[in-house]
Design a protein around this nucleic acid. Structure first.
Length: 945
RNA sequence: GCCGGGUUGGCGGAAUGGUAGACGCGAUGGUCUCAAAAACCAUUGUCCGCAAGGGCGUGCGGGUUCGAGUCCCGCACCCGGCACCA
């Protein structure tokens, strides 16, 4: 409390009074369960009224640093939207859980020896406290953390579902492995080589089945990050070849790891983007990441080699322009293609000066292998070497030399290309260096200079005995050549993707253990439901084996492997007690967030991850053909291809297996902007506490910044500890109160745009709330000042225009302009000294979603016993939307020359006459002939002379 | 290079093709006070003018229109994503 001698008025809306009001209402909401949303069935079942509305925030990682004022921006926005929806009569589901597995807790554990769980739980407590003080209308019964054994159990259960599934291309969906096994056993299906199931050994059967599982173990190139001591998914590696987290170097290594067959869903993940309401930027990032391209796979035979070279191209129409071929240095056919000696007349520059192709290829491969991906990217100069072999172009029989070059990547397409220097800039560049012929197959426009022509045009130089593409447009030529190739067994139309399978195992302690054990034949076996969850064992040391970040040859070593008594376990999995070995990798921290939206709908269900009825109600499609999913999902854009892609994938698997009725987890996605902040550096470039910096403006109007006596430089960046510019919500509660913080954050700008924090501007929101308070409450006595006076026409008009505008702003998340409109209404009432219930009650109701505590307090002082949570949001009366008089603008030659106060239903003729008589308009016309008068009654008259 | 978003007062921002700058911060002046703070009131794009009024003004250059911040064409710069992806 502020001491009395500092506050002349004891009922002024100060931060102290705001604090009392806010905490009182937070207690009341909690004890009354105000924001508890009933479910159709189960332990949270209740009477349901209205339409359902499921709103969600991207759930937070409970950081030890606590929150700064940037964090709650999205939470406030969803809270306002949710509170508005409740007042519209909806049954609103809004809760917040915690994404509690993750690296920081593990690092903290390594440093302090404190168990990550202990530390994480205390961080969660702290965050819950900070968030509660913000007055968020969450259903507390539905909160959880991904580390809760109950939650983890279902994460593991989903893993087992994925492990026990395969993708049936014919049906275009995932199906249980049991159905595949049944098809094998019945003879309906045989192994790819034709062998019958009955003729396979148990091991062969396992291998056959394991090869198609949606979760599988694979020995292939993965991203190994010694600095983190773990492998990473492609999505977690930046374009610079470093870890997204920690920025450590990442190396490609062949390692045995778990993967998820997300590539089976490539098409659906792309196609269904058209069915969700997401920002175009995020959709485009996902499309790019999946990287679907349509083209053709074409075989180029090589004399003396059984396997032809398969290439992938998106431009099969240019095949007549193929003058050479290129294989990635790592391509498996390179050894066979490399000849003993250089063919006669091999140009010297094709050989790199080597005595034989074998020597040249070996040297080139060694050089390519020594380069990291990053170095390959940096050096864009095209290099390569001739293998000594020639391939045959299937369309015209031309012999073309086969090169290896590192500008062809092993991981994309087939790792081999038909090079068309006339139609591809990269091929052109290479052809120039190696003196290879260039044939154009598309007519370039006149005056085209430059090497490769990649634009539109008509096909030329493309004829053989049976086929002529000449004269065709490119798309028709593609179809024609694919048809021809297909008929001649030389190729087919096909699609490739950039997306790779999701590397799913991590060598960390603080993650979900895999519900997998290995038998004596080293075959992975999923644990039955009854043995879930598999909980983390206590370990003597939480650290993964750490390495020098640059030590590419180090090997991952999971911390769980150091607990032999946990790893080796006796279980009865159906054929009596036997010894098994547990999987010692853990899941990535994306696992829990890949399905948590489902658990909000039925958080305590012990029998199912979510009851189908509850899932259908909260997430199911509203109309046939819709995807269903959360009605509004708000979060930062940084998860565009990580979390959002993984969650869609898991959701689709669960949909295929019949566990959910929705095809997409999040129907509408909204990316909020960030709150940024100024930061200040001293002369040494060291950050100084932003809170202590003073701004000075001299007579010349030049602004400088000072930390004590030292001048400092202003920068702009993320808010946080490292830039010493963090402002905490706690400071704001203390100085202004939670409602002020909420209103300020919502009024700063549009939700999807980043904006700078400015503590000194927060007072504006407080002044606004104080004005509202003063309208209703006597600052000295605390008496209610509202009266029952009738509203004048002007006030009625302003009120209803405000209602109309605020409603529309709320619908479209334009909270900044909603606040502005409420301020305007308040300023009008204040200026006119109006305190009529007819105006202040709607004002309080409209303010309530933004500033719920002061809203509730004023509502209750107005004599209402019940919370306003479910009070109907005011509705504008169309009769009051038009004003008694309107300002009409009179333009002469497009410039405003006069203004008229006129009746809204004035006729065009009358308005024209008034306009032409307005003195300043007459002066502007200056006797010139009026050629045309455009009238948009009642707001505008435009006169042309 | 490709894709997406952006550029409006001193600052954050507002404007169905129809009064550019709502609302807020800051600044200036005032009320209250012994004084200060808080609060309240007024002014605040810029230039000319005593005023009435007028000129200029939404990154730059064109265009459409009676009228363009808004639509079209071209360009510059900034932010984000992807990038030798055949």
């Amino acid at each position: 409390m502020t001491t009395p001698d500092q506050t002349p008025a004891s009922y002024r809306y100060t931060s102290a009074l705001a604090g009392q009001i806010e905490q009182r209402w937070q207690d009341r909401w909690e004890s009354e369960g105000t924001f508890e949303a009933p479910n159709p069935t189960g332990d949270l079942a209740g009477e349901i009224t209205g339409d359902k509305y499921f709103i969600m925030d991207m759930f937070p990682y409970p950081s030890g640093a606590g929150l700064h004022v940037g964090h709650p921006l999205g939470y406030i926005a969803t809270d306002v939207a949710g509170r508005y929806r409740r007042m519209r009569g909806d049954n609103v589901l809004h809760a917040l859980g915690f994404d509690a597995f993750g690296l920081p807790a593990e690092i903290h554990a390594v440093e302090t020896g404190e168990h990550p769980r202990t530390n994480t739980l205390s961080n969660i407590d702290n965050m819950r406290r900070q968030l509660r003080r913000l007055g968020l209308a969450h259903d507390q019964r539905r909160s959880f953390a991904t580390i809760d054994p109950d939650f983890m159990r279902w994460t593991q259960w989903i893993f087992v579902q994925i492990f026990e599934s395969w993708y049936d291309e014919e049906q275009g969906k995932a199906r249980p492995i049991s159905e595949l096994r049944a098809e094998y056993e019945s003879g309906a299906r045989t192994a790819p080589d034709g062998t019958a199931w009955a003729d396979l050994t148990p091991i062969e059967r396992s291998v056959l089945i394991d090869a198609v599982r949606l979760a599988y173990i694979d020995d292939s190139p993965v991203n190994w990050c010694p600095g983190l001591g773990t492998v990473l998914a492609n999505e977690e590696v930046t374009a610079e070849g470093r870890s997204e987290r920690g920025n450590f170097p990442v190396f490609t290594r062949n390692l045995r790891q778990w993967k998820m067959r997300i590539t089976a869903y490539s098409d659906r993940l792309i196609d269904d983007l058209d069915r969700v309401d997401w920002p175009e930027s995020v959709k485009s990032m996902q499309r790019n990441w999946i990287g679907r391209s349509h083209g053709a796979r074409i075989s180029f035979p090589v004399e003396g080699i059984a396997t032809p070279i398969a290439v992938f191209t998106t431009r099969p129409d240019t095949i007549f322009g193929t003058t050479y071929m290129v294989l990635a240095p790592e391509h498996e056919l390179v050894d066979q293609l490399t000849t003993e000696a250089w063919p006669d007349e091999t140009p010297l520059q094709w050989t790199n000066g080597a005595a034989s192709p074998a020597e040249a290829v070996t040297a080139y491969r060694a050089m390519a292998a020594a380069k990291t991906d990053l170095e390959r990217q940096e050096n864009k100069e095209k290099t390569g070497v001739f293998t000594g072999s020639f391939a045959t172009n299937p369309v015209n029989g031309a012999k073309v030399p086969v090169f290896i070059a590192d500008y062809v990547l092993t991981g994309y397409g087939t790792g081999a290309i038909m090079a068309v220097p006339g139609g591809d800039e990269r091929d052109h560049e290479f052809a120039e260096s190696y003196a290879l012929p260039i044939i154009h197959t598309v007519q370039a426009p006149e005056g085209f200079e430059g090497g490769a022509y990649t634009g539109k045009g008509v096909v030329i130089n493309s004829t053989n005995d049976e086929l002529s593409l000449d004269g065709m447009e490119i798309d028709d030529a593609k179809d024609a050549v694919i048809t021809w190739l297909q008929a001649h067994g030389a190729g087919e139309g096909t699609t490739t993707y950039r997306l790779r399978d999701w590397l799913f195992s991590r060598q960390r302690y603080w993650g979900e253990p895999f519900p997998i054990v290995y038998d004596e034949l080293d075959q992975p076996i999923a644990l039955p439901d009854s043995m879930l969850p598999v909980e983390l064992p206590e370990v003597p040391d939480y650290s993964p084996k750490t390495y020098e970040p640059e030590d590419a040859n180090s090997n991952p070593e999971p911390p769980l492997a150091r607990v032999p008594e946990w790893v080796h376990v006796e279980l009865d999995l159906g054929d009596g007690p036997k010894m098994y070995r547990r999987e010692t990798n853990t899941m990535p921290n994306w696992a829990g967030s890949s399905w948590y939206e489902l658990r909000y709908a039925d958080p305590h269900n012990a029998d199912r991850l979510v009851d189908p009825e509850n899932e259908r109600y909260w997430l199911g499609p509203r109309k046939p053909g819709e995807t269903g999913g959360v009605d509004l999902y708000v979060g930062g854009v940084e998860h565009a291809v990580l979390h959002l892609l993984y969650a869609r994938f898991w959701h689709k698997v669960l949909f295929d297996l019949g566990h959910v009725s929705s095809e997409e987890p999040f129907h509408k996605l909204f990316n909020q902007g960030y709150i940024q902040a100024h930061a200040y550096t001293d002369s040494r470039g060291v950050y100084v506490e932003a809170a202590g910096v003073e701004e000075r403006t001299d007579e010349a109007g030049v602004t400088t910044y000072w930390s004590g006596d030292e001048q400092v430089t202003r920068e702009f960046g993320k808010m946080g500890k490292s830039l010493k510019n963090a402002v905490t919500p706690d400071e704001m509660y203390e100085t202004y109160g939670a409602d002020t913080l909420r209103v300020y954050e919502m009024s700063m700008g549009p939700m999807d745009v980043s904006r700078p924090w400015e503590t000194r501007a927060v007072v504006g929101a407080q002044r606004f709330l104080q004005r509202v308070w003063r309208l209703l409450v006597d600052e000295d006595s605390g008496d209610l000042l509202a009266d029952d006076a009738e509203l004048d026409a002007t006030t009625l008009h302003i009120l209803h225009v405000t209602i109309d505008g605020v409603r529309s702003d709320m619908e479209h998340m334009r909270f900044n302009t909603a606040v502005a409109k409420l301020i305007e209404l308040t300023n009008h009432l204040t200026k006119e000294g109006l305190r009529s219930r007819a105006a202040v009650e709607p004002l309080v109701l409209m303010l309530a979603p933004l500033a719920p505590h002061i809203g509730e307090e004023l509502w209750s002082r107005l004599g209402h016993a019940e919370t306003l949570t479910h009070e109907p949001f005011p509705v504008a009366d169309p009769a009051h939307l038009s004003a008694a008089s309107v300002t009409c603008v009179v333009q002469v030659l497009g410039k405003v020359r006069g203004k008229l106060e006129v009746s809204p239903d004035i006729s065009d003729e009358e308005l024209t006459a008034l306009a032409l008589a307005e003195p300043n308009v007459v002066r502007s016309i200056d006797g010139r002939e009026v050629r045309k008068v455009i009238v948009r009654a009642p707001k505008l008259v435009s006169i042309v002379v």
